[in-house]
């Protein structure tokens, strides 16, 4: 590959990113619009953010969403990491094909099917629907995403490091916490962030599995969007976009530093040996 952009490549990248980002940029800019009309500019203002703060129902929904996301992302990361180890390190075991099917199918399964089937098992079990059923539902699909993220990292790294630790007498559990986990840590952080944002974003599955009293932010936004476009929705969307962007950029920075550090240590080790 040449070290510069060809004209065609630069154009396709530029047009592609314009398509991806212009809608989001317009949405963010017009959240600072003075006018109630979302498409006509009438000067800068932050009043829609102020009116968000007055909206108690919205704040309640935000609080429910945040708690659901933190709890479900944490559980999903643990289960997803175990699933990734199963896929990459456990070799063959009875029911392996079924297991990998159950990891990959939720990634593409339409939300309406996942939502309906989870609701029906909660009803069949007689569990009261609400806050906790949304969490159980979110763990179920986001653990599969977490598994895929962690699995990619587990594949990359040299298995002989783990074997060396165990040859030196470490237990499997000790090896995991002292050798494996530090190496895959960046991917575990990414997995948590991904699970967190998936939970933050989900409308369909939460709508099916919720009960009285548990309304999440996407459900609230959805019911307002159906009534029409308002600057308040732009404002709340901008806040969410801001949170996600900060999180993703922070994770990217963290991963980059981690890889650079690992690279330096590797060089130092080889330098000392040579």
């Amino acid at each position: 590959m040449k070290g510069r952009f060809s004209w065609f490549n630069a154009m396709s990248i530029l047009l592609g990113f314009a398509f991806l980002y212009i809608p989001i940029l317009l949405l963010v800019i017009f959240s600072f619009n003075e006018s109630k009309l979302v498409t006509v500019w009438a000067g800068w203002s932050t009043k829609w953010y102020g009116s968000l703060l007055q909206n108690q129902a919205l704040k309640d929904a935000a609080w429910v969403t945040l708690r659901v996301a933190v709890v479900s992302a944490s559980a999903a990361t643990v289960l997803g990491t175990l699933a990734a180890i199963t896929l990459v390190r456990m070799g063959r075991f009875p029911g392996r094909t079924l297991f990998s099917g159950m990891i990959f199918a939720p990634l593409v399964m339409p939300d309406v099917i996942t939502g309906l089937s989870l609701l029906l098992i909660f009803v069949a079990l007689g569990i009261d629907r609400g806050f906790w059923t949304i969490i159980l539902a979110h763990i179920t699909f986001s653990m599969c995403y977490a598994a895929v993220v962690v699995q990619a990292r587990l594949q990359d790294f040299d298995k002989s490091v783990e074997e060396a630790a165990m040859d030196l007498g470490a237990t499997p559990v000790g090896t995991f916490f002292q050798v494996t986990l530090p190496i895959i840590a960046p991917s575990v952080v990414s997995a948590w962030l991904l699970a967190f944002t998936l939970s933050l974003d989900d409308l369909v599955i939460a709508s099916f599995t919720t009960g009285p009293g548990a309304t999440t932010l996407p459900m609230k936004i959805y019911s307002q969007v159906r009534l029409g476009v308002t600057p308040e929705i732009n404002a709340i969307s901008t806040i969410l976009i801001g949170i996600v962007t900060t999180g993703v950029l922070a994770a990217a920075y963290f991963t980059k530093r981690q890889t650079e550090k690992a690279e330096r240590e590797r060089r130092a080790a080889f330098g000392a040996a040579g």
């Binding site: 989001i24 949405l27 409308l203 936004i221 969410l240």
Partner: peptide
Amino acid sequence: ILPFWTSFLIRIYAWIAI
């Protein structure tokens, strides 16, 4: 990746105004 992490609902909402 960044838009992929941004809420589906919000990105669809952005198109209504367009």
